[in-house]
Nucleic acid binder design. Structure first.
Lengths: 224, 224
DNA sequence: CGTTAGATTGATGCTCATCAATATTAGTGG
DNA sequence: CCACTAATATTGATGAGCATCAATCTAACG
């Protein structure tokens, strides 16, 4: 996935950009003239409800492409908010059209990105729809761990995970309190420890066992 | 969306195909040589867990494109099972590559389809993650009603909805029993009546009020 | 050193899952 | 055309998981 995104951006880049934590990169309903890929930093992608609730759709990691909906549909269908300082590659949204005329590899990469996004959302839906709190958290941690490790961000058995418990709760359709208590149980059981913005997996096998309610093989998955 | 799909298929079609209810059109993990668009009939799109549970990812209606994941990623990431007799347009998966070389409109249509799919999955995730049983069902009914009505399938104030309560439950992450009881409440309240494979909306305003916990305007949405 | 964002912990009760029957409908073969 | 079977829908009872409310605690920061 990352390889495709890199291929997509080459020679198409407008510039680089650096933003502070808390910055809203793209806003729901907005017709941003820019789209991005993430070089450094992490963010959350969410949808808001009028009640003030939010559903976090995805955690944004280095290598991710931002603005697919803006690129294809003109406007964003969710918002993206930085959780750390971030460095981004900036592209002009309007020029996405060109890609489909005469740049087949890039066009395909874009469609690929979209297909993978829908695949991952499907997986998330399964988790939120069918699993209990512990299973959802275990699943999310493993998914994040794998991606971050694959990006080479693992150090001393830990990966950077600079989100709030509230973010995780909103990603998994849980309350903050229940998320907190489940995290405490995991920590006590030595399964994993997420604190200070770092995630450490204490017992990979056990955590996998909890998360593995589906038919996926425990091996590395190509799309993560 | 439907318009794009039609554009995608023209002059690319291999043949038509008719299947009986219960047929599995595409199976999770399978590398199908075919992809489809739906001319008639309805189906469910789901992912299975090893526990026997299933998460229904989407209800498939006429006009839908089937096999995006197979087209872009080689293998299906979910299964599709017919719930009625269906008539389908059949295409050769292998030829999807050609689309990106020299058929920009079709390539764009494909990317559009993928983007819309990810958008709709995001909406579903919000529903399952943030709303209670009644809200989820109201939301699902309105979504289905709009699409079916837009397809011209409304008749006598009813649209065909040939799914089981179990299907709806699995789509919304609810138990069959609770779904059934919520449907009974809705029926008694005169909000809507789903029985005999037909959905009738009794009180559109009230149902919308229940479902409308988000910021969407109550008007027709372009992507449905 | 006060202020604020985030994390933690306890108490309470509602929503919803689960178990278990029974009712209904549709489909099938004699 | 009617018993027989299987699939689906319906209803009641029970309790677990989780949301919610309300404090308190910790850490970062100007």
């Amino acid at each position: 996935m990352s390889a495709d995104e890199v291929r997509f951006m080459e020679g198409f880049k407008i510039g680089e950009m650096s933003v502070d934590p808390g910055t809203t990169l793209l806003a729901e309903g907005q017709e941003s003239p820019w789209i991005y890929t993430v070089l450094e930093g992490q963010a959350v992608q969410y949808k808001s409800l009028s009640t003030g609730r939010r559903q976090i759709i995805n955690f944004v990691l280095p290598g991710d492409f931002l603005g697919l909906h803006a690129a294809m549909m003109g406007e964003m269908k969710h918002s993206i908010e930085a959780r750390t300082r971030m460095v981004l590659c900036v592209f002009e949204r309007a020029r996405v059209q060109e890609v489909f005329h005469g740049q087949p590899a890039r066009a395909q990469a874009l469609a690929w990105i979209a297909a993978v996004e829908s695949h991952l959302l499907g997986e998330t839906l399964v988790s939120v729809g069918q699993r209990n709190a512990g299973q959802r958290i275990a699943w999310a941690f493993l998914r994040l761990w794998r991606r971050l490790e694959a990006m080479g961000l693992e150090r001393d058995g830990m990966v950077p995970l600079p989100f709030r418990q509230q973010d995780l709760a909103e990603a998994l359709g849980l309350s903050l309190v229940h998320t907190n208590k489940t995290l405490a149980r995991f920590r006590q059981a030595g399964l994993c420890d997420w604190s200070g913005g770092k995630l450490r997996i204490g017992n990979l096998a056990a955590l996998t066992g909890i998360a593995l309610v589906d038919r996926d093989d425990p091996e590395q998955r190509p799309l993560m």
